[in-house]
Design a binder for these strands. Structure first.
Length: 677
DNA sequence: GAGCACTGC
């Protein structure tokens, strides 16, 4: 428990030059955004170059205005020319976004700005949702959606202008699109018909990286519209960022008007829940006669209804305080925030290609993230940001976060690259090239999964199965599970299971899960392991008509389970297109376990001693995660979905398997593993 | 006997 901060503690902060934030007078009408004065220059730069880079801070209007500028300019140019070629080509302008909500909401806004409905001239395309028509010329879409389209046509011929927005975020999908778009650019330049223009839009960083990548592409700076933000650092290094945040919170609370909301960035659910409790406790204890506060937690795996609370306005005499993960950094914009408290840390998953281990740990943020967090205080008017780290610490932070492509397993990305006809992944033009070891590990995994085969030196081609596997929006291991269950006659079951494995946990994970709730869950337990238990929950959910009531009683996260239903539908359609054998095995669940073993054979662990298991692949000593239904049981051989290191190395989502299944599925692999025993 | 950030197809 943290003590209430003494009120005489001076604020241990140091003012810093906030010149990174331009002081601008905000103008509400979109016609008067600063970007409009640059319209001509923008149009010229795009059409006079194959590729160009635009830099601009949040709020400069680049995402909403630029696609429209380009469309209108093109229309004007071709007004008097009956251009048959342009009629035959679709000539779409697309603008990619890393997030679904962004793609949808921007499309809707741009459509309304030209007094149209979304889906006419302006539309969007995201997974499970699309609003486009024959009239559509400007298409906002998720980067992942464009990547899917690239699998069907790597030269992306229906687009004449491709805008990669938010490039500084360096998502896996955007990074892959860089390589694809660069190749398409060259191809279409050579073929001389239907030329392509590429526009990369980013916040102000990595300029040289982007420009150099596209052969010294010209760079244009766009004026931002952010309000000024005063940034303060602590004077001394803080060992406990939660305590420091609390002290700062109450100092702000005592010294500023109550209508000024405060946003605190912390790293995870536990930390956030306990901090919320502490704040409430300090207010309720009444020792200091503090003004009232509404404290709200915010993280992704929270019931949607609870998330919505942060948007509600609080009465004038009550302070709003939000304690958030980095979901509040980009994904959710909370109204009324004037002060940001930045703990300087973030929880991230990293992947070590040497060991194949995933690590979930709290790390320091990058400077870019620090500015992004600070920016959340200046959305509506000038604000302040308090950093729980010194200016020297800030200077030592990496300038940008490590791109996702450099810290994930490359099996999925590798399969996609090969599926687009690039036979040597090492020659793919990555914006940031992953470690050669990482690429080798991915190729090895895909080879074992029989998705690819080596032809000669460093080149690979897809097998028939590999071509099918690339069609699924899944980890290749799970795609292999689907193909295996098609052969074994349990594809219906595996579709359900794989869909659940594609979403976050379907169990409610609030910190007040008590024994009674655990008892509720036990009735779903299958002795063979977690996968069949999950399947059981899914089937019972359907049998109970997917009702809210059933989910409430059984402490099931309905949002995630409904998402799994949507995914199942999509995967099933792909199975039909691929003419797989869609059959149910009834209750012959050993077939499902067998199919799991065929796909997850690289994730096998055998009982070692006491409560330890040893993985067959890399001989890591691991433990069964306490959330598993097999926790405490000691089956001799299991497959698992995930190996992750938190406080210890844990395997999660586990199923008991038979050794014969493994030997059958991949004799070469297990012969070598078993001989080294 | 733990306690999982975020996003996407």
């Amino acid at each position: 428990m943290v003590k209430a901060p003494p009120d005489h503690t001076p604020m241990a902060v140091d003012s810093q030059d906030s010149s990174s934030f331009q002081s601008m007078t905000p103008i509400p009408s979109p016609n008067q955004l600063p970007i409009h004065s640059m319209r001509k220059k923008i149009i010229q730069t795009v059409f006079n170059n194959d590729c160009c880079i635009f830099l601009g801070e949040t709020g400069c209007g680049k995402t909403t205005q630029i696609p429209r500028f380009l469309y209108e300019a093109r229309e004007k140019k071709f007004k008097n020319i009956l251009n048959k070629k342009s009629q035959r080509n679709k000539n779409l302008i697309c603008c990619t976004q890393p997030r679904r909500v962004a793609a949808i909401s921007v499309a809707e806004r741009v459509a309304s700005e030209i007094n149209q409905k979304c889906g006419q001239l302006v539309g969007y395309s995201v997974r499970f949702d699309e609003s486009v028509s024959r009239q559509t010329k400007i298409k906002y879409m998720t980067d992942g959606m464009l990547l899917r389209e690239a699998l069907l046509d790597p030269n992306l011929r229906q687009y004449s202008i491709i805008i990669l927005d938010e490039a500084h975020e360096r998502t896996l999908h955007t990074d892959l699109l860089f390589g694809i778009v660069k190749q398409a650019l060259e191809y279409r330049k050579k073929s001389k018909k239907n030329p392509l223009h590429v526009l990369v839009m980013s916040a102000t960083m990595n300029v040289d990286l982007f420009s150099n990548y596209f052969n010294q592409a010209p760079v244009l700076y766009l004026q931002g519209r952010q309000y000024p933000i005063d940034v303060f650092h602590v004077q001394d290094i803080q060992t406990d960022y939660i305590h420091a945040s609390l002290v700062t919170l109450f100092q702000i609370h005592r010294s500023t008007p109550l209508n000024e909301g405060i946003l605190i960035f912390l790293t995870g659910q536990d930390e956030i829940d306990s901090t919320c409790k502490t704040i409430k406790h300090i207010i309720a204890s009444g020792t200091e006669s503090l003004e009232p506060i509404v404290v709200l937690p915010l993280y992704a795996n929270m019931a949607t209804v609870k998330q919505m609370l942060v948007f509600k306005q609080t009465p004038m005499n009550i302070r709003k305080v939000i304690v958030s993960t980095n979901i509040g950094e980009t994904s959710i914009t909370i109204p009324g925030i004037r002060h940001v408290i930045d703990c300087g840390h973030v929880k991230t998953k990293t992947f070590n290609p040497q060991t194949g281990l995933e690590l979930l740990q709290v790390q320091k943020i990058s400077q870019a993230q620090a500015w992004q967090r600070a920016g959340r205080a200046g959305r509506e008017c000038p604000g302040t940001c308090y950093r729980m780290y010194t200016e020297e610490e800030f200077d030592q932070l990496p300038s940008t976060p490590i791109p996702e492509l450099l810290r994930c397993n490359l099996a999925t990305a590798g399969l996609q690259i090969l599926a687009m006809g690039i036979t040597n992944i090492s020659t793919f033009d990555f914006l940031s090239k992953p470690d050669e070891k990482s690429i080798t590990a991915a190729l090895r995994e895909l080879t074992y999964l029989r998705a690819i085969k080596a032809s000669n030196d460093n080149t690979y081609e897809l097998t028939d199965d590999g071509r099918k596997m690339a069609c699924f929006p899944l980890d290749p291991k799970l795609s292999r599970c689907l193909l295996a269950s098609s052969d074994l006659g349990c594809l219906e079951e595996m579709l359900k299971l794989v869909s659940i494995m594609s979403v976050d946990t379907i169990f409610l994970t609030s910190s007040n899960i008590n024994e009674k709730m655990k008892m509720q869950r036990q009735k779903f337990t299958m002795n063979e392991g977690d996968h069949l238990t999950l399947l059981n929950v899914y089937k019972t959910f359907i049998a109970n008509k997917k009702t809210k009531e059933w989910c409430q009683i059984n402490k099931i996260n309905r949002r995630n389970l409904l998402r799994a239903c949507a995914i199942r539908k999509q995967l099933r359609r792909i199975c039909i297109e691929l003419q797989l054998n869609i059959k149910s095995c009834g209750t012959k669940y050993s077939l499902v376990r067998q199919a799991l073993a065929y796909g997850l054979f690289m994730n096998v662990a055998e009982y070692f001693k006491e409560n330890d298991y040893r993985t067959i692949n890399d001989r890591h000593i691991v433990k069964i995660h306490p959330s598993s239904v097999l926790f405490g049981a000691k089956p001799s051989l299991v497959v698992f979905t995930e190996l992750i290191q938190t406080t210890k190395r844990f395997i999660r989502d586990i199923t008991v398997v038979e050794p014969e299944w493994l030997l059958e599925s991949n004799p070469d692999y297990f012969k070598t593993r078993l001989s080294s025993k």
